[in-house]
Amino acid sequence: MAENDSTRVAVNGYGVIGKRVADAIAAQDDMELSGVADITGDWRAHIVKHKGFQLYAASDGHASPMQDAGLEIAGVLDELLEQSDIVVDCTPKRIAAKNVELYRRRGIKFIVHGGEAHDVTGHSFVAEANYDSAVDRNSTRVVSCNTTSIVRTLSALKRAGLLRRARGTLLRRATDPWESHLGGIMNTLVPEATIPSHQGPDTQSVDPDLDVVTMAVKVPQTLAHLHYWTVQLTRNVEEEEVLNALRTSSRIALVRAGDGLNAINAIKEMMADLSRPYDSLYEVAVWEDMLKVHGDELFYAYMVDNQAIVIPETIDAIRALTGTIKDGPESIAKTDAALDIGLAAIGARLAAQGNR
């Protein structure tokens, strides 16, 4: 640990997740961002320096091109790891699995994300579901954005004793907004080729007891994902009991289409109005006035911000692996306070009051 007892955290990869993780680490009072490693010399690396973060080259071979681009680098990834207690790997899919060999040789704790397979770490993480099992481990995988949302919502129903089985259809954004000029789809819908889609089995890597099946289709937009769920409950209930179960999670925000939040772009705009960094929706935004219960069947829909939802989970995973906070609810509350999680629900309530 650093002398001030802050956990020294390295971030490897400064893309859509890495930059958000770096900012979130810098916002914690019990963590220190020891540096950011990357391979690029373009504008993204210059932002690292603009924010006052230490920039490292991911390898010796990337150091010279980065310096030729006018960047002052503090060293290479190996040196960054020497000064860190844990590393969060935010590199592109399948790259992290290769980096793991270095982390293990170095004997440093590490976190990968949902683009990697469960077997890379042998543990998959969502804070509200299995924080305890990650405490003092050497590594974990923070699951994907969609899987995180599924575990959060179904776990809330499970804790209330309401969940029997769940079936979901996912409308997946085509690509990340910043690189939509490089790829994605136009004028088509692309179904995931298998049923269940990979999110269902991935959810069970966090909680094997969940009876969940998913189907997914890629759609030509880049803002966020949209889920529709049909859930069989353990008994007949009223809608308010379901809503109260969802309210037990600080990372589920109940929003109302009737307040003008009737589309994913409107919710993103509210995040901007709430001054969220990068317009981030850290919560799962569930439409409460769309939610319906018929006997023991529940129907609901929600929005997932694919670039933001895993950020608080990553912060909690850092504390769990390093053992600085062994109690899950304590870490979740600390992360929520630092990132102002819960503002979405507050904003929705303010909007509702203003419209009534």
Rank of each mutant, 00 (worst) to 15 (best):
A156K: 08
D136A: 10
L157F: 05
N130A: 05
Y282V: 11
L274V: 02
T322Y: 14
A272T: 01
N187A: 12
N355Y: 08
L81A: 03
H123L: 13
T335E: 07
S249K: 03
S64I: 08
W43T: 15
G15K: 05
V217Y: 09
R173Q: 15
T188S: 12
V217Q: 15
M1P: 10
T169I: 15
V151S: 10
N262W: 02
G295C: 03
D305V: 01
M271N: 00
H181A: 11
S180W: 05
N12R: 01
V217E: 15
I86N: 05
G70S: 07
A2K: 14
D209Q: 06
H46T: 07
A352L: 10
G328I: 03
E79I: 08
H225M: 03
Q307K: 09
N130P: 00
N146E: 07
D340E: 15
Q28K: 07
D89H: 03
A129G: 14
D132S: 11
L171G: 12
Y302A: 05
S249E: 04
H123E: 14
G161I: 04
V212E: 08
H198S: 12
E32S: 10
T248F: 04
A174M: 12
W178P: 10
S249Y: 07
V304T: 07
N244A: 08
L154I: 13
H198F: 09
R106Y: 09
G18F: 05
Y56Q: 09
A57C: 13
S250F: 09
R159W: 06
N12W: 02
Q353I: 10
C145Q: 09
R167S: 01
A263D: 09
R235N: 13
Y103K: 02
V213A: 11
I47M: 02
R159G: 12
L261W: 02
Q307T: 06
T214R: 02
D202T: 15
L171F: 12
N146M: 11
L77T: 01
E179T: 11
T153L: 14
A2S: 15
A263H: 07
H46Q: 07
M303N: 08
I108G: 03
A285C: 14
K51A: 06
G70W: 01
R137Q: 08
A301M: 09
G41K: 01
S84R: 00
L223H: 14
R172S: 08
L81M: 06
G168T: 13
A344E: 13
V286D: 02
M271A: 04
R235W: 08
S139M: 12
L210E: 04
A174T: 12
T121A: 12
G161V: 04
M290K: 10
L281E: 13
Q28N: 05
M186N: 15
A74M: 05
